[in-house]
Design a protein around this nucleic acid. Structure first.
Length: 366
DNA sequence: TCTGGGGTCCTAGGACCC
DNA sequence: TCTGGGGTCCTAGGACCC
């Protein structure tokens, strides 16, 4: 075992990524739809088919139906597909079944989202061959007990394991040994790095780097100048497959929010404030479930050009009661509307900066 | 042709304090 | 009239992820 500055450099990390998760959950619940194109949708409620595709199964992807496209377009591409609304409760409970299995076979797991997790296997296996055997058993156990397939990636850190799990899908398994990392990454697109998205990819392409291998030849100085300290250094290291971040069990959530699409674009304070009051009740409900108090609250406005605006406020003392949320949110919304003469498409509110427990009522602030 | 909803993390500028 | 440098907190916005 090689340890540097308290970081174990010879780790074995497994990344598990459930295949087309929401749609696969629906297939499990409704076996009769298996084999047909399945499209899980977020309906905005604006008109019958307004909204976007959340997840589609592989049969639907053959028609060009991918996450993010409008539902109306998906219906034109495959009118006979099965269209279902998102059922988050179902996916969360199935997710819990999967995570329990992962936890049994790992030193530690880090659940990254409802359908993904990193597992630190360093203490469970001696080498990458044993890790591969264990990953095969875990995949089989998930298939037997939960009834779902997943794709797995094994590497010396989270960054490599994540890319590996994406390498072969669905139902894939990819192992990248430490001495294979550089040649594995070199030909891949820069946006295959989780953390380098569309904008970063475009800027790097303009600077002449199309692949991760080409990115790795750029100097850290140039990258820092272009992207700032944290991101510049990260890009340089990521391109070389370097990632010391540990697998850490995630505790709690950092923010709770709710955002909706308005029935019609509007700048009418009455309509927007009514929506804000409803959102406040919803967020208050989520907050109560988790027994949290917050200090920071924000009004979120998405204008018709899809630009995201925020107006936020920090309470002097933490709170969690509906009155405080609603009063603060409505005040922020009113102030935003006075300052910004824009038409809004969607509105939301978000609370953050949590402290455990009940907090105090702080209506006196307003 | 039309674009959902839930999050995380980082940056930059101004206020304020010592 | 001129007045340094550093740190922290707060707010707004941007990029990214599933």
């Amino acid at each position: 075992m090689v340890i540097l500055n308290g970081i174990n450099l010879s780790r074995i990390i497994l990344h598990i990524d459930m295949d087309y998760f929401f749609a696969q959950c629906e297939e499990r619940e409704h076996p009769e739809i298996k084999g047909r194109p399945v499209v899980v949708c977020v309906y905005s409620g604006r008109s019958e088919d307004s909204g976007a595709v959340s997840t589609s199964n592989y049969e639907a992807r053959k028609f060009g139906i991918r996450a993010g496209i409008p539902i109306s377009r998906a219906k034109k591409l495959a009118p006979d597909a099965v269209f279902l609304p998102v059922n988050m409760e179902l996916y969360r409970s199935i997710s819990d079944e999967v995570m329990e299995i992962l936890r049994e076979h790992s030193d530690r797991i880090e659940q990254e989202s409802v359908d993904e997790a990193y597992c630190d296997m360093t203490g469970k296996v001696h080498d990458f061959d044993e890790a591969k055997e264990l990953a095969i058993r875990i995949k089989q156990e998930i298939k037997n007990k939960v009834g779902l397939t997943c794709s797995a990636g094994i590497g010396p850190n989270k960054l490599v394991a994540k890319i590996a799990s994406d390498f072969q899908k669905p139902d894939g398994l990819t192992v990248v040994m430490p001495d294979e990392v550089l040649q594995f990454l070199a030909p891949l697109k820069i946006t295959d790095l989780s953390g380098a998205g569309k904008k970063t990819g475009e800027r790097l392409n303009e600077l002449g780097a199309m692949t991760i291998g080409e990115l790795s030849k750029m100097s850290a100085e140039d990258l820092v100048r272009e992207f700032g300290q944290a991101k510049g250094i990260w890009l340089k290291q990521a391109s070389q497959g370097i990632d010391a971040s540990p697998v850490v069990e995630r505790t709690g959530t950092g923010q709770i929010g709710r955002i909706i699409t308005l029935k019609e674009n509007t700048n009418q304070p009455g309509i927007i404030l009514d929506a804000v009051s409803e959102l406040s009740e919803n967020v208050h409900g989520k907050l109560k479930d988790r027994e949290l108090s917050f200090r920071s609250i924000a009004f979120i406005a998405i204008s018709t050009d899809l630009k995201i605006h925020t107006k936020s406020h920090l309470l002097a003392t933490p709170a969690n009661d509906l009155d405080t949320i609603r009063t603060a949110a409505r005040r922020l919304a009113r102030a935003f509307l006075e300052e910004n003469p824009v038409m809004l498409r969607r509105v939301g509110i978000r609370v953050a900066d949590f402290v455990e427990g009940k907090g105090q009522k702080t209506l006196g602030e307003f």
